[in-house]
């Protein structure tokens, strides 16, 4: 078909050497100058990309510089300890519970947000009439405009009491699933934090999905309809495959955002340092929320310990991204062979 492969990106573009830039007769007199401009522009963009790397390396070095001394002073294993008393004598702290909480809240949030976000994006692009779709699109974007501190306050004052019945309902009917078992106190749980996070990342995922769906080639959509496809079949065959890489990167963006969210989680979580598989019970903590909670009153070792936990978050994000990239790459191979 020769249509663009979104997930192939750069590698699928016309290779530099094969670019139809050279044909003799159409060559213009200003070519040398344009060549120079071209090269300069290229350098400018490459320089910007390098600058991003420089910033990240600087941040990573800063994190290491602050984190390592604190980890050395830790009297227990940094990775398997749950306690967080870095300013005690001796300092005792570890990220086991924090990492667990970070992953669980973010995964739950993504599980809740992605289906809804994709549904929203689909209905906005394919189902709802165009005018209404724009309005709805703006409305969902508005969710992104609400500052995280407002989500936190809303979560604390409104959602925590309101989610009680829902949590109880889940515990009553699904209590046989271990994660939904509960002692009868509901409110500031991992589940609540996940709901807040899901609401917060929903607009990001929805907005990117929407843009990606909009860009699906009209020709393919029409081709699907011409073959007698229903709307859903059209979406499945002409829109979704085209959008897959965009959806994955939207999800990863949402996941990263969820893991890094600070204030909102700090406000709705009843932070403790336990590893608790019962997502409806009070408790749980995340790396970012723990930084927000304890940085203000942390001493020297405490600050270093918090930065060390930030470094861990950094590494987790790195792993998640490599994973996502591997999935995209595998998908691409599959699609290339199937096409």
């Amino acid at each position: 078909m020769g249509s663009p492969h979104p997930d192939g990106g750069s590698t699928l573009l016309v290779p530099e050497t094969a670019r139809p830039e050279v044909p003799g007769p159409t060559r213009r007199p200003t070519r040398a100058k344009e060549r120079l401009a071209d090269r300069l522009f290229r350098r400018l963009t490459a320089g910007s990309a390098a600058f991003i790397l420089v910033i990240l390396v600087a941040i990573a070095m800063f994190l290491l510089d602050r984190a390592l001394p604190a980890i050395y002073q830790d009297s227990t294993s940094f990775f398997t300890t749950r306690t967080w008393l870095p300013d005690g004598t001796p300092p005792v702290f570890g990220i086991a519970a924090l990492t667990y909480g970070t992953l669980v809240t973010s995964v739950l949030a993504v599980l809740m947000a992605v289906p809804v976000a994709v549904g929203v994006a689909l209905s906005v692009t394919s189902y709802v009439p165009r005018r209404a779709a724009q309005v709805v699109g703006y409305l969902v974007d508005l969710l992104a405009a609400i500052p995280s501190v407002v989500y936190g306050l809303w979560g604390l004052i409104f959602l925590v009491p309101a989610i009680g019945p829902l949590s109880k309902w889940l515990a009553d009917y699904f209590g046989w699933i271990p994660i939904f078992t509960s002692q009868g106190i509901f409110g500031k749980s991992i589940f609540t934090a996940s709901v807040v996070l899901a609401i917060m990342i929903l607009p990001i995922i929805a907005a990117i999905s929407r843009e990606v769906f909009t860009q699906a080639p009209q020709s393919q959509k029409e081709a699907a309809y011409a073959l007698g496809a229903t709307k859903w079949e059209m979406i499945r065959t002409a829109v979704l495959p085209y959008a897959r890489s965009g959806l994955i990167s939207a999800t990863v963006l949402g996941f990263g955002r969820a893991m890094g969210e600070t204030i909102a989680v700090a406000l709705v979580l009843s932070a403790n340092y336990e590893i608790n598989i019962h997502v409806l019970a009070p408790g749980g903590n995340t790396i970012a929320a723990n930084i927000a909670n304890t940085y203000g009153d942390a001493g020297k070792v405490g600050q270093g310990a918090l930065i060390a936990s930030g470094l861990v978050l950094f590494v987790i994000t790195l792993i998640v991204n490599f994973g996502a990239r591997a999935i995209v790459a595998r998908n691409k191979d599959f699609r290339v062979s199937a096409a």
Binding site: L156, K188, A271, N272
Partner: peptide
């Protein structure tokens, strides 16, 4: 122990 951070189990925490 007494500490800046709450160390006892249970209960609900608030920022």
């Amino acid at each position: 122990k007494h500490d800046k951070t709450w160390t006892a189990p249970g209960g609900q925490g608030s920022k």
